[in-house]
Design a protein around this nucleic acid. Sequence first.
DNA 1: ACCTCGAATACAAACGTTTGTATTCAATGG
DNA 2: CCATTGAATACAAACGTTTGTATTCGAGGT
Lengths: 337, 337
Amino acid sequence: MKKPRWKSQRVTIKDIARLANVDPSTVTRALQGSERVKKSTRQSIEKIAAEVGYVPSVAARTLVMKRSQLVGVVIPDMTNPFFAELARGIEDEAAKNNLRILIRNTEGQQLAEKDAIKLFMELDVDGLLVPMARCPKEFYERLEESCPVIHVNRLDAKYHVSCDSLRGARMVMDHLIDHGHRRIAFVNGPSGPVKEPKMAAYKAALNDNGIHFEENLIFEFDGALQSTKEIGNQLLSLKTRPTAVFAWNDICAIGLIHALNEQGLSVPGDISVAGHDDILLAGSVLPPLTTVHWPMYELGQESVRYLLGLRAGYEPRAPEMHKPSLVVRASTGPVPS
Amino acid sequence: MKKPRWKSQRVTIKDIARLANVDPSTVTRALQGSERVKKSTRQSIEKIAAEVGYVPSVAARTLVMKRSQLVGVVIPDMTNPFFAELARGIEDEAAKNNLRILIRNTEGQQLAEKDAIKLFMELDVDGLLVPMARCPKEFYERLEESCPVIHVNRLDAKYHVSCDSLRGARMVMDHLIDHGHRRIAFVNGPSGPVKEPKMAAYKAALNDNGIHFEENLIFEFDGALQSTKEIGNQLLSLKTRPTAVFAWNDICAIGLIHALNEQGLSVPGDISVAGHDDILLAGSVLPPLTTVHWPMYELGQESVRYLLGLRAGYEPRAPEMHKPSLVVRASTGPVPS
DNA sequence: ACCTCGAATACAAACGTTTGTATTCAATGG
DNA sequence: CCATTGAATACAAACGTTTGTATTCGAGGT
């Protein structure tokens, strides 16, 4: 035994046909439950198929049907519980409708995103689910000619399921301002479909409350937890410290709180910190996080339903905007006196 | 326009052949970079292929080659950062070796695991990566006849990449015992390849230190964060409270700490809590978690390398046991006096 | 001028399914 | 008893690649 070899001796429909003394076409139809085969033959075929351990060839079927019956899902960052939750919604709903999905992770990189899509196209997927896509609009418009593409939170896309990112951010800002905060730092994140709306909400909130915008209260978070330490330091080195921070997401908020603690500041005693996403652990950390809850699980489910509807030939209904909600916990409080 | 339809008008190798005035077989060979085609023809073919936007059909190729050049990965729970990290390792290493991988999530359910495997077999995958598989050994043994299957942490599997779960658990126990703890509660988790070793390590540590085992100090965690509240309550309703808890994983530990805090206990002042997994946030929560670090990213990378080696025909090297490490942070301390 | 050789390319079969059409066969009606 | 019908099944082509073998063609040697 030079090499361990793996035999790919597939049992085919022809083998079954031979054993059952019928034509291969009859086997297909029997396995599909077609009306055209007699009940008794179908049963004997099913029996044989089970006995020999028949495994259909997706490749062959795809070749003739021109569609693989698979749906590709492109997730930016599985490490982030926020997206993991969305993926769960997608998977559960897909399973319910026995749709088979395939997941790829892009780590937030455009290149990986394109690569994922490329693979899916080569696989003749039946549809694409692309939450928070990073690639430009035009890139997806080309794809839409060959298969349905559902976006999550891409208002400018043909088909999308979205949540009002502007509103969520605004709620956080209003909450902070209501508590008397005026110097509110804002940590923005990597580009994507929610970056701009959040920034817009931040500015609008300041503006509506007569607070003037300061460039040096704006920070940038790249998504890596360890980067929060640096942001924390920058924040503390400002001449006048902000009394509150609106962090890009909960990961960022938790990291920031940790960094601030290390510098001897307490949250929310000395400084309030709000997050975004309401990840699983958001309510269990100390202090429990004030954050914005997005119905990610539901958005996942709905995107699958949307796709199913489209495939069934329904007219796409007008995209309805889901509403995020503010979850006030203990990481935010009044301005320290 | 009754229905929005998606044309699946693939540009095929034949189309390119026609445009280039050659035979389809020449096109394939050109695109493969075969020596058998003249450089000039190859170049013109490549040019045409790019112009018309040729997308190869994985289905057709798989059909004739009997292998899809894809590797299936079955992850138990993407929501758990522990596995997400492993997935990252797998993906990165796969990308480096341009191997294409497909991920499926099982939510820890055997049924979903079987289903995932079934799909992968139908797709003629080139290999399977199955971390912390829930399904019985025999199930996988059958598969191993048709394609290489690499397990993570399944010592009894033919091919596996593992980390010493016994040792990790033992280190936590020794750490706690060194700090004077005698009544140590243990929260075990759902069945899988690490459940038994952890329990064994727990018992061995007690035994080696002359502490006798108490059944009512053993709890069971199902993986859902909210279940920790109930466990916390049970824990506090014991006649004599344990002074330390070894939790199944970090999620469980964080939930438990939160539950204990709510009941007015401080960690580690009143009770020490240790976790397992060293998830991303473990060091950033309050108190930072004492936990066991597993090199998940590396295990992911290595499992891919292992697979690659196997496919290349190398003899499988003796599986080396990776070593976990104890990360002592602030959630554990001496026994309260 | 003929033969050989090798480079470049063409031909054709095969992979496992699906599906439209053709065939068989028995039962029914006249 | 033959024509008609309809149920059950068989036949055959097609899907887009890959690959072993055959063909073509021109150059080089004799």
